[in-house]
Write a protein that binds this DNA or RNA. Structure first.
Lengths: 233, 233
DNA sequence: AGCCGGAATTAGCCGGGTCTAAAGTAAAAG
DNA sequence: CTTTTACTTTAGACCCGGCTAATTCCGGCT
């Protein structure tokens, strides 16, 4: 019924909407999907006709309930696939995204169910992103904040890391920074560069782009240094 | 580089070619893929431009070496997927084909490798169809013959069953006829209806369409009824 | 040899999804 | 309040992959 491309648009709108909130601009979508704005405009027209997005001329676009459901379905596929590839096919953290992107539009409901079963119906994927439930109920808003917003002395636990940049993920993997890792912010330099100390005591300096794609939850100050025990899953 | 659709055409030509031999007619491809002949003609033009098929006007088409390699790649994907779904995701014999068809164009080389490893690099899929090797060397011609060509009294072992008709596969599964099953032909009625006795002694009458999609290898006559031991994999 | 029927091709159309170039609009800056 | 600037949309084109209708070809039959 819906083309792969339409699903990609809905997914993109969902993702942008969930960080910057509606309305989502034409140009934001264009950048996210690496298309030109006129291309996006014409696609938005088709999505509007099908009742998947609500549009206000020259303003931007917003998913309808139906559009959101489609986006959640695609996201569920994507994140289940990422989890399955990592768990059962020995993929590393950084490799799963691209493969899941290619497959997410082509799996059946049956496949989705069997993969979910094989994984024990997980609720988060390897990057810490929540996996929509089978009934596609809306996800609750992510209350965690971004590492680059923190100050020196803050203790935090990593909750999610964006899966979109493979290089970045390899870098973080090597640095031992994954969901569940506890960190102490030891320095904040101009332009967002953040230095953190990991549980082992190593210090890592993260460029602003990286620091802003890491979501964390703040812990109470912890002068005893026992944070290492928190969520070591 | 090549579109999904092109891969489908090459796979179809390969399949037709391997039973009826070249040249493959436009109308045969059209029927196999459920498209109209003009559609096929135009696609064959594109495949010819890319050097994937050789064409003689008004005659038919034949895969080039390059085209055959592509077809083998797709077939390898398809059959590895079928095997993986059956082995690791609990799919039944009859369900795998459709899912594999949807996924075969979208998996990476990496995925192919990992699935093959997970399966122990199998050489046949659940329907008995040979899986092309990773180097995509041409498959040798299938020397087995079709059940409907046999006469009363023949003893045979099932080697392959076409995977294209789901209903048929469910029927055969229920009847206990899978690759490796030994059969005795007990009756041949007009219009190709064939009756066989399975190892357990049950008799099954198979319509001609079914009997002609089962490939078998003939055994020496076996009056002792010990055929049941042959290839019970 | 000539005709005829079946099969293949050509001609022409359409919708999907993309682009570039041109035009329009809204919001910020003066 | 007007002008500038950034963003959006419209206009028009292209390629892909499909279709129907019309035409052309080939091989067999008389």
């Amino acid at each position: 019924m819906l083309s792969d491309v339409m699903e990609d648009y809905l997914k993109a709108i969902y993702q942008i909407q969930s960080t910057s909130g509606p309305p989502v601009s034409t140009s934001a979508i264009a950048e996210y999907l690496d298309k030109t704005p006129p291309t996006v405009t014409s696609m938005l027209g088709k999505l509007e006709e099908r009742g998947l997005v609500a549009r206000e001329k020259y303003k931007g676009v917003e998913l309808t309930e139906e559009g959101e459901t489609v986006a959640l379905e695609v996201l569920r596929h994507h994140r289940l696939l990422e989890s399955y590839l990592a768990e059962h096919l020995d993929y590393s953290w950084s490799e799963v995204h691209e493969e899941a992107d290619a497959l997410e539009h082509h799996i059946s409901e049956e496949f989705e169910r069997r993969v979910a079963d094989a994984l024990g119906n997980p609720t988060v994927d390897p990057h810490g992103d929540p996996i929509p439930s089978a009934d596609l109920a809306p996800l609750e808003h992510d209350e965690t904040d971004v590492l680059s917003d923190h100050d020196v002395g803050d203790y935090v636990v990593v909750t999610r890391v964006s899966d979109r940049d493979e290089e970045e993920l390899e870098y973080l993997e090597a640095a031992g920074i994954t969901p569940g890792t506890a960190l102490e912010v030891t320095d904040v330099a101009p332009f967002g560069m953040v230095t953190v100390r990991t549980e082992g005591g190593d210090e890592q300096s993260l460029p602003d782009t990286v620091a802003s794609s890491i979501r964390v939850k703040e812990l109470e100050p912890d002068p005893d240094g026992t944070n290492g025990e928190v969520r070591t899953t």
